[in-house]
Computed example of a mutant assay.
Amino acid sequence: MAISAKGKRRISVDERVYLWRSFDEYDQGWFNGVQVIVAAMDQELFLRYGLGQPDKSRTAVVSRGRGAPGIRAACPRFEGDGDVFTPQVVRSLIAWGLAVAL
């Protein structure tokens, strides 16, 4: 089943296409507040990151493949100054997620 591109931004990293979006959600999943979700078009990598997390407990969720369980892993701060999420920051998140998922 394909991933819907509606409402998502497209980004290419190493000739692989990803879709990403940010949204604000509470009490519904891994993080509360503003989050970023990234999905590879081939559905081989899924990432979720919550903005504004404390330094000592900052994590992201990585999943390899559709339906695979998500793994919460400690991660660096990805958002830029003022909690801005740019395509460059998304590329950094993807690179980190690929390294963790291997």
Rank of each mutant, 00 (worst) to 15 (best):
L47H: 02
A40V: 00
L45N: 03
E79T: 06
G70C: 00
V38A: 01
R48D: 12
F46L: 07
R48H: 10
P69W: 01
L93R: 01
G80W: 10
V61E: 08
K56G: 09
E79D: 15
A39T: 05
F46S: 05
P69C: 00
C75M: 11
E79H: 10
A74S: 14
A95K: 12
F46Y: 14
V38F: 03
W96N: 00
V36D: 03
L47T: 07
G52P: 09
S92Y: 05
L93E: 02
R66T: 04
I37S: 14
R48C: 12
G80I: 10
Y49M: 07
L45K: 03
L98M: 06
L51Q: 11
S92D: 10
G67Y: 00
V61A: 06
L93A: 03
A95D: 10
G70P: 00
R66F: 04
T59G: 08
Q53R: 08
P87F: 13
S57Q: 09
E44D: 05
G65I: 02
P76M: 10
K56I: 06
R66C: 03
P69Y: 02
R58M: 07
P54F: 11
R64E: 08
P76N: 08
R72N: 14
A68V: 03
Y49L: 12
G50N: 06
Q35N: 10
D42I: 02
A73P: 01
A40F: 00
R58I: 04
G67N: 02
D81K: 14
A40G: 00
M41A: 09
S92H: 11
I71E: 15
L51W: 07
S63A: 05
R77A: 09
F85G: 10
P54R: 13
G97K: 06
R48V: 09
G80C: 09
P87T: 09
G80A: 05
Q35F: 06
S57F: 07
R77Q: 12
A68Q: 04
C75L: 11
Q53W: 04
A39V: 05
P87Y: 14
C75P: 03
M41K: 07
A74T: 07
G50M: 06
T86I: 06
V61K: 05
A74W: 12
R48K: 14
R64N: 05
D55P: 15
R91A: 11
I71L: 15
G70I: 01
V61C: 04
A95I: 10
S63K: 01
V84T: 12
F85A: 13
I71Y: 15
D81N: 12
